[in-house]
Structures are given as structure tokens and as C-alpha cells.
Write a protein that binds this DNA or RNA. Sequence first.
DNA 1: AACTGTGAACGTCTTCACAGCG
DNA 2: CGCTGTGAAGACGTTCACAGTT
Lengths: 222, 222
Amino acid sequence: MTPDPGRRIPEATVARLPLYYRVLLESAEARVSTISSDRLAEMAGVNAAKVRKDLSYLGSFGTRGVGYDVDYLLHEIARELGLTQDWPCVIVGVGNLGAALANYRGFGARGFRVVALVDADPAKVGQTVADLRVEAFAELGTVCARERIAIGIIATPAGAAQDAADGLVGAGVRSVLNFASGVLSVPDDVSVRKVDLATELQILGFYQLRGANTALNTSRPA
Amino acid sequence: MTPDPGRRIPEATVARLPLYYRVLLESAEARVSTISSDRLAEMAGVNAAKVRKDLSYLGSFGTRGVGYDVDYLLHEIARELGLTQDWPCVIVGVGNLGAALANYRGFGARGFRVVALVDADPAKVGQTVADLRVEAFAELGTVCARERIAIGIIATPAGAAQDAADGLVGAGVRSVLNFASGVLSVPDDVSVRKVDLATELQILGFYQLRGANTALNTSRPA
DNA sequence: AACTGTGAACGTCTTCACAGCG
DNA sequence: CGCTGTGAAGACGTTCACAGTT
């Protein structure tokens, strides 16, 4: 069930797998059955050698002289990323952002389902957002157990983020996506990914000031 | 006005400056006037040598045997990131996410102001969101010129993102923050930063499957 | 002939360890 | 003595270039 833990996949590669997955989905929808590393690289906005090296960490899935079978590769990447499983998520903090995330259709990644919402504000508890009843923050432990929560999404104000993280960790959640600014303290067996609007804008500000462009992130020329 | 372009600051360092800035702000609010690289590193969840090397790219701002003056360092980082200037932003796509971003108080980074909203849906045009009137997507060029837009924030569905990017680029915008999934094609003098929920969740999925944790992103142990 | 898979070269980022300064 | 600033070492990531396979 779990992929072979013998192969160590570099973090940089892991971070690009979702990108390849998306590009491959587009190709599959366009009825393309086979794709070369050159074409995949072009569509993803990266170097072809990088594509080949990245994919080689997952195994030898290509055919020399031909390319990669789109459906097969999709399946392998999906398996590697756990997209074949179900990951119930809870959103902590149902303000503007939390509500928007709850309603976010294009949650894109299959398998990631928002199944519960909690908020510390008694006025919000009991309200319905995206067909879910908002529950009290104090119930977080109960909610996580009941819904078998795998991922906690923190969408609280910065000041409440550490409490949210502590609550999630206490409830046994080991993967956290943090939209609040500031640094979270968590035990080192917990994974945290941070998404911070202010940080991204500030990075753009730096390069705008310099008249230079950022290669730090995904896009392709022309 | 513009920082000395002679010093080349590594991208990895640029990406951490907003983090240091936030930590320093916290220290300043707590009336701390001087901070060591050790303490700053602890608060930011990174290695102390990294902090010193990063800061050394900006200049020699510390005092040996003492540490860094919090206010002075804040000012220097702010200058480097362009936080001392005003960056008018437009949000393209006023759905759940676009509206949430428009209302986002903690836009945290001073200087970044959302001053205009545009949407391709005629039903949305004319509505007021976050005290701003939604304007037609066709008016994007006019809007960007009128408001001297520096940064475009794309919050459209995936299918409309490339059109949004083309419109922004055509209007002379050279910094783009993209919340839509998929890869954008832009001229190579345009900076694009991408924020993608699905990607982040998929990365968490990978590590959850492996029982390992991600060092890829900001958090500190314990 | 076309394209993958990969060793080796290269470049970038991180960390160490200590000289240098206050 | 304490802490910064930095050369040097090491780890990591990217790209090249080509041998190997279909």
C-alpha cells in the first residue's frame, strides 16, 4: 500500500510531482497517450533533464525511443503522492479565508476533502458554511477523532495560529497547512507547510525594486 | 532610492527576509532593542549561521559581542524588500478566494494595498467588495494605468488564469501572484509567484504516506 | 532514429569553524 | 569573553552529455 520506502526522493523532486501530475492530467484530457520528457518539460516550464531525473526516482517508467505512457505515469505519481487515498481535512478558523477555502471547488487534488470546520468564536459555531456545521474549537479533539482527520488547515488570525496548531497536534494530526503568518512550534514528527500572502508579496516587491525576475517559482517563458 | 544593485542576494536568502522581518517585528513589539543571531534563528526556526550569512548579504549591520539592533535591522530589511514604498495591487477574479483576499485585513506587509478588483462575469461588475467597485475584465488596461498597478493577483478559475496573466502583462504589470493552478506563460521579464493549495496538500500527502516530516517549510521544533 | 536513464560536472545553498572585532 | 562576519567544506540540486534500449 505504502510506496517502497527504500528509494529516497529528494524534497525538490517531491515538490515538483504535483506540477507534473497537473500537466499529465491536461495531456490525458487532450487524449494524448504518450509524452516525451521534452514535451512534459515544456508544458511544466522546467528543464527536460530535470523531468527525467525526477521521474527516475520513482522508477523506470519510460520507454526509450518513445516516451512515457501518460495514464501509467499519472497512476504512479498519484500513488506516490497518496492521491489514491482519502485524506479528511479540518479547517480551523472560519473567517473570510477559511470560508473561501471550505467553498473552494477546485480543491483540485482528489482525495483531499474538507469534512469539518471549527472556530473559537461562539457566534460562528452552529452556522453552516459549505454545507458543514461550524463546531467549537474546544471540540477539535473530538472532531478529529470522529472524522479521522489527517490534515489540519489553519486559517485563523496570526495570534490564534499556535493554539490551533497545539490543538491539532494534541488531537494526533501530523500534517498541517498554515495560512497564518508567523512561525509555528510543533514536534518534529509533524509536517508543516506554510502559505503566506505577505511573504509572497514581499518577495515580488524585492524583485520589482531590482527590475529583475524571479526564477524561484513556476512559470514558463514566452 | 533603489538598493545598491552591486550586491547579488541569493534567491534563498530573499525568500527568508520576510520571515526575519516578521520575527523582528515581534521582537520590536516586545520592546527588545538588540537581538543575537542565535535568538533570531531560534525564533525563525532556522540555523544561526544561516541568519548571519543571510544578513551579511545586506551589509554589516551587527555589532560583534552584542548582536543586531532590532529597529535598524528592521529598517534595512524593509528597504531591501521595498516595504518603504507603495505597491498598488489589483485582484483579477472576485470569487470566494478573490473576495477573501480583498477583505484580508492582515495584508500584513505594509505598502501592499488592494486598490482595484476586476472580474469577467458581468453579473459581478458593479458590485462592491471590500469597499471597492468590481470593474469589468475588459477594463483591466485602463484600471492598471489609472491606479498605477504594480502587482497583479490572479484569483480566477484555472481556465481563465492565462487570459488574466496576458491582460496584466499587456497592461504593463511585471509582478504576478498566481493562486490559480496550472502553469502561466509570461515574458521572462515578468516575475510570477505561485500559491497553490492543491500542490501543498499533495506534498503533505507524500510525507504523511512516508511517516516522515518535511523540512521544506517553515516551522521550529518543540 | 528517438528518447530514456544516469554518471559526472557544475552551481547553489547550508553548515562548520574560527578569525576578527567590540 | 561574546558574538558577528566569512572562508572553506560539505550537502544538495541542476544540467550536461552520452551510453543504452527500443
